[in-house]
Computed example of a mutant assay.
Amino acid sequence: MDTAAFPATAVGYGQLLEWACRFGPVPRAGVEGTGSYGAGLCRYLLAQHIEVIRLARFVEHHFPQLPAPVGLGRTALPP
């Protein structure tokens, strides 16, 4: 396993996908936080024909007393 950081831009999304593909095919990707910050990444991945699966945010796992968002599951964002 490895770690890396990429800018939240179209170029950075491309670099992220290129990096991830070094480990093998990427038919789907889990994205934490598909709202405002994750939406661009989700759109990019969907445009590359990669299935996006929305993951619960860190805080939802560690602070279950807080209300969780409704509708966790697969994401399909409009273009």
Score class of each variant (00 low, 15 high):
residue 1 M to K: 09
residue 2 D to Q: 12
residue 3 T to M: 11
residue 4 A to H: 13
residue 4 A to V: 00
residue 5 A to Q: 13
residue 6 F to V: 03
residue 7 P to M: 02
residue 9 T to D: 13
residue 9 T to H: 11
residue 10 A to I: 09
residue 10 A to W: 05
residue 11 V to T: 14
residue 14 G to W: 01
residue 15 Q to A: 14
residue 15 Q to I: 00
residue 17 L to K: 04
residue 18 E to V: 01
residue 18 E to G: 07
residue 19 W to D: 05
residue 19 W to P: 02
residue 19 W to Q: 04
residue 23 F to D: 13
residue 23 F to W: 10
residue 24 G to R: 01
residue 24 G to A: 05
residue 25 P to K: 14
residue 25 P to W: 03
residue 30 G to N: 07
residue 30 G to L: 13
residue 30 G to C: 10
residue 30 G to T: 08
residue 32 E to P: 00
residue 33 G to L: 06
residue 34 T to D: 03
residue 35 G to R: 14
residue 35 G to C: 06
residue 37 Y to D: 03
residue 37 Y to T: 08
residue 37 Y to C: 04
residue 41 L to G: 09
residue 44 Y to E: 05
residue 46 L to K: 12
residue 46 L to I: 13
residue 47 A to I: 01
residue 48 Q to N: 04
residue 49 H to S: 14
residue 49 H to Q: 15
residue 50 I to S: 10
residue 51 E to D: 14
residue 51 E to V: 04
residue 51 E to G: 05
residue 53 I to P: 01
residue 54 R to Q: 14
residue 55 L to F: 04
residue 57 R to S: 13
residue 61 H to G: 06
residue 61 H to L: 07
residue 62 H to M: 07
residue 68 A to D: 10
residue 68 A to K: 14
residue 69 P to Y: 06
residue 76 A to S: 07
residue 78 P to A: 12
